[in-house]
Design a protein around this nucleic acid. Structure first.
Lengths: 220, 220
DNA sequence: AATCGTATAATTGTATACAAGAATACAAAG
DNA sequence: CTTTGTATTCTTGTATACAATTATACGATT
């Protein structure tokens, strides 16, 4: 059973070009390789990625829907990107919805999802023992994803997933002190326990604490 | 000065075809003309709208980003649409953020935006006097838009705008009793007054009341 | 020298052409 | 009659070609 796809879409092979292009452009914009205001000329992107304009334009349209790019009629696409204020705002919005997600998850979680959450948490314990921070970051994301799914709220799931996608490049520069793994594990244990025991109040509180600490750590 | 664009994007002329196509397809999916599970064959859409596949595909990509359509590799696009549960969930999410928006708006609103909010409210009074429900629905949307802008939170603005866009077709079948206009006006007056007086607590409360009533009315 | 106008080049918007994979129809085997 | 394999058709994915708009270069005029 495959629990976690290491979903770096930039290297998906069996997908339309525009999908991997989208992921690459998202990455390049969010990491600052492509800067706000910069013109994205289709021809240059064609040469850069060695594909024709069709998939390029499709990727640009999706970036536009994400709000990372602005398209001006007959003049082309320009990078919008994310300001520090944008990140701050997104973080605040994420926090509120992560807390709400716990409540809905407790109300609606299925047995299968509960098993998956437990299994995911056990992976966290395993990687903490192994002291594997990179794996932990992936599992961390996965743990929250299970909660999103368990909320059975498509809107919430889509939104929080996209926020994760936006914020993940911030996490790369995270403070990783010696207590990172054990601290994060403890925080997730509280969340997991509350969900298992269907304790809404405790779950929301545990999530709030976790997200606030995540902000201080500048990563999940 | 143009206060309100009657933004039925289905009739924008000076825009790429894919933009008006997107609006039309959104409308057709949200009003149920195109049903969940239905295959959207590019050729058929070409004939339907008398354009080539290029703009069709671009519109489909954006619908995919909206979550209204699912794209399966080499098999095409399928309508996802919005279930009643989706609408319910979206409404709950919207509520949380409309309330949050008031708080941020009060903290960050500029003089220009305050003027615009006042002007918008005065239009509401005018159209209430004129008993013009259709205009009222548009102004109602505009009033909230000003608050979104005043929150100076791009993420929030984008999210709530898209929710408005999704929910607007629901409003068309709204209960429109004889008190609709005066009730809605009174609700907005409370919100407006609280923002003008920078009373966060009153503003959030007024918005919560307004949104809850809007849910009962099944429209803004 | 600065500004305006025109011609040219470059870029986007749209349509079409070609390639690759998926669905369908149908025949042959069990 | 059902099933399986294959050929054909259809659809999508990608590249290219053409049209329309915008940007640039350069010379003429003041």
């Amino acid at each position: 059973m495959v629990l976690f796809k290491f979903n770096d879409d930039t290297e998906i092979s069996n997908a339309p070009i525009s999908t991997s292009l989208l992921a690459k452009l998202q990455r390049d914009i969010l990491t600052g390789k492509l800067k706000p205001g910069q013109k994205l000329t289709e021809q240059e992107l064609c040469k850069e990625y060695d594909v024709s304009r069709t998939p390029i334009r499709e990727a640009l349209r999706q970036l536009e829907a994400d709000g990372l790019v602005e398209n001006i009629l007959n003049r082309g696409s320009f990078v919008i990107g994310m300001s520090e204020q944008d990140y701050e705002d997104m973080f605040e919005m994420r926090k509120a919805y992560e807390i709400q997600a716990v409540e809905w998850a407790i109300e609606r979680i299925t047995e299968e999802e509960m098993d998956r959450l437990e299994e995911t948490f056990e992976f966290m314990e395993f990687y903490t023992m192994r002291n594997d921070i990179d794996k932990m970051l992936v599992i961390n994301s996965g743990f929250h994803q299970v909660i999103y799914e368990a909320s059975h709220n498509r809107m919430l799931q889509k939104l929080l997933s996209s926020y994760q996608n936006f914020l993940k490049y911030k996490g790369a520069e995270a403070v990783r002190d010696e207590n990172y793994l054990t601290t994060v594990l403890a925080e997730h244990r509280e969340i997991f326990r509350a969900i298992k025991e269907k304790d809404v109040k405790a779950g929301k509180l545990a999530m709030e604490i976790h997200i606030n600490r995540a902000k201080e750590r500048r990563c999940g």
